[in-house]
């Protein structure tokens, strides 16, 4: 937010003694960190795209893989990830509302919205664990795949997916799935932890004393970034 910044003319902006970006040190470096993190995820997704492009005919169809829904016996592709996406977008909205409440120094509202964000994040991590569980366990019938056993490649019926075999198709799909969604899930998890830390400080009144809720804004940046990455993971893993 910089609508509040006193306008500096571009001639003197970089001559020192002022912030040419019009934002605090902490926020600038949160942004730079996010750019580097975004490049990491881009690299991973590009590698995924490479393998997928190279193996078009044996690549698993996500619509056949992720078909489970809690408390429902049957197959509805995409529904559950759609719900997960909704949960994460929702928690992004509650986060931005917490930031907005912070701008008004409204401690009570910040507390409520931060709490909802934490709950949303925890729900998302839980959903991802559930999704992994079903991917690892696989179907009842399994599929015949080439497996490396005792130093030999043999045909074998395999159930579910892990780092070496994948019932649904190429093992490298499972490797990418575990690594990328795992890396993202770890970001969500650490985001929840950081949110809890900031939430505790909000309750304790640290930021009310300080006069501004900029820490909420910084952690909000990180949280929105997690949502941003998920939007891309969702597209490349589940939709395409």
């Amino acid at each position: 937010m910089s609508g509040h910044v006193a306008e500096t003319d571009s001639d003197s902006a970089w001559s020192g003694g002022k912030s040419p970006f019009g934002v605090s040190y902490g926020k600038v470096f949160m942004w730079f960190f996010l750019v580097s993190d975004a490049l990491t995820f881009s690299g991973l997704l590009c590698a995924y795209g490479f393998m997928r492009h190279r193996h078009p005919e044996v690549w698993p169809n996500p619509g056949d893989v992720f078909t489970h829904f809690p408390f429902y016996h049957g197959h509805i592709p995409l529904a559950y990830v759609g719900l997960m996406t909704l949960i994460l977008i929702m928690s992004s909205v509650t986060m931005v509302l917490a930031v907005e409440a912070g701008h008004r120094n409204d401690k009570k509202k910040v507390t409520i919205w931060m709490l909802l964000t934490i709950i949303g994040g925890a729900m998302f991590v839980g959903s991802q664990a559930w999704e992994w569980y079903h991917f690892i366990v696989g179907t009842d019938h399994g599929a015949l795949r080439s497996v490396f056993v005792d130093g030999k490649w043999v045909e074998q019926t395999v159930y579910g997916a892990n780092m070496t075999v994948n019932e649904y198709g190429l093992p490298v799909f499972a490797n990418f799935f575990f690594f990328i969604t795992g890396f993202h899930g770890f970001h969500v998890f650490s985001g929840v932890i950081i949110n809890i830390v900031i939430f505790t400080n909000v309750i304790k009144g640290t930021y009310a004393k300080r006069g501004h809720y900029e820490m909420v804004e910084k952690v909000g940046l990180y949280w929105h970034f997690v949502d941003l990455v998920w939007v891309f993971v969702f597209t490349f893993f589940y939709l395409l």
Partner: peptide
């Protein structure tokens, strides 16, 4: 020593 910006944009209830 950085008087050019404030840490947070503070806005009123209506703007909020």
């Amino acid at each position: 020593d950085y008087p050019q910006y404030e840490f947070m944009a503070h806005h009123s209830e209506e703007a909020g």
